[in-house]
Simulated assay, not measured.
Amino acid sequence: MTEINVTPMIKDSSDQDFMADVVEMSQTTPVVVDFWAPWCGPCKQLMPALERAVKGAGGAVKMVKINIDENPGVAGQLGVRSIPAVFAFKDGKPVDGFMGGQPESELAKFVGRLSGASDPKAEAEELAVRAKDSLAAGDPGGAAQDYAHALKLDPECAPALAGLARLYLDSGNEAQAAELIAAAPDAITDHPEINAVRSRLTLTAEPVADDATTELRAAVEANPDDLDARLNLAKALAASNQNAEAVEHLLYSIGKNRAYKNEAARLFLLTIFEAEGNQSPISIEGRRALSSILFA
């Protein structure tokens, strides 16, 4: 009788067997590695839920459990500082992972990405939408987490990349935002949301001192039809994210003389609209007012 060699779907492993159980095995079948310890309460909650998710993949994914008290070597090499820590290996390399507890729905997605049962791009889009909801609820930290996770799943998720860049801008880190936008993959470099952030970076590239803005305000008040002063004031306001007031000055200028300086006011106004995005009240009201002026 021929002996059948069946590799277990879920097994305990060690530092010594890691190469065979994880690195070599993942060349043909993705492997989830759960680093745990007997004293770790969250580990005991996560492990059975993770096992259920792996079993639900029907053999398309395997799972290895490593007790770090007895086997600290590989965990240390992977930089594990807290547990539970879970890594996904494919083609001999770690490709995904997380630390801490996760709801079963997220574990199913995690395993599904490895087995091909779930679409990383669709999941990234969902995370980007959830991040926007978090921002609306006043939770920028949660939004940043979701945006970063979305980009890990799909580096070409434009809403996530643009959203993360906007968070950098909102925190005053323009250099990091610019670096992120500059590194956008070619496939999304002209995406409307990427262009919006790029335009916002253009607006804030040259900050204007408060005293200079005050002088420009005084010049406009002294001579409302000084279109040079109005344009410069609008640029100063936009540089400090006061776009609503900047739009008012630009609309006034366009109403007085649309062609002034090769339509500089109108072109700068369009840059603000792009930076704000199509759904911004500033863009919506501003475009309506611009149409009234142009087609009166």
Rank of each mutant, 00 (worst) to 15 (best):
P155I: 05
P155W: 00
E156F: 05
C157I: 03
A158H: 08
A158K: 05
A158G: 02
P159F: 00
P159L: 02
A160N: 04
A160K: 01
L161K: 11
A162C: 08
G163T: 14
R166C: 01
R166K: 13
Y168E: 14
L169C: 04
D170E: 09
S171E: 12
S171H: 08
S171I: 11
G172M: 13
G172F: 01
N173Y: 01
E174Y: 09
A175R: 02
Q176F: 07
A178I: 00
A178R: 04
E179G: 14
E179Q: 13
L180G: 05
L180S: 02
I181K: 10
A182D: 12
A182P: 03
A183Q: 10
A184T: 07
A184P: 10
P185D: 11
P185S: 13
P185E: 08
D186S: 14
D186G: 10
I188N: 07
D190S: 12
H191S: 06
P192S: 03
E193D: 10
E193T: 11
E193W: 02
E193P: 00
I194C: 13
N195P: 13
N195Y: 13
N195H: 14
A196N: 12
A196G: 15
V197T: 09
V197D: 01
R198L: 06
R198N: 09
R198Q: 10
R198H: 06
R198P: 06
R198G: 09
S199A: 15
S199D: 08
R200A: 07
R200N: 07
L201S: 03
L201C: 00
T202V: 12
T202P: 02
L203D: 10
L203E: 07
T204L: 12
T204F: 07
A205W: 01
A205C: 04
E206T: 09
P207M: 00
P207V: 03
V208R: 11
V208D: 03
A209E: 05
A209H: 09
A209G: 09
A209Y: 05
D210L: 06
D211Y: 04
D211K: 07
D211I: 10
D211L: 03
A212L: 14
A212Y: 07
A212C: 07
A212Q: 14
T213A: 10
T213C: 08
T214Y: 01
T214F: 02
T214N: 05
T214Q: 11
E215G: 13
L216R: 04
L216Q: 05
R217N: 10
R217S: 00
A219I: 01
A219K: 11
A219F: 03
V220C: 11
V220L: 14
E221R: 06
E221K: 11
A222Q: 09
N223E: 15
P224R: 15
P224C: 11
P224E: 15
D225E: 15
D225S: 13
D225T: 09
D226P: 11
D226N: 14
D226W: 08
L227M: 08
D228L: 14
A229Q: 15
A229V: 02
R230S: 04
R230H: 02
R230N: 01
N232R: 15
N232K: 15
N232T: 10
N232V: 00
L233S: 12
L233W: 00
L233F: 08
A234W: 02
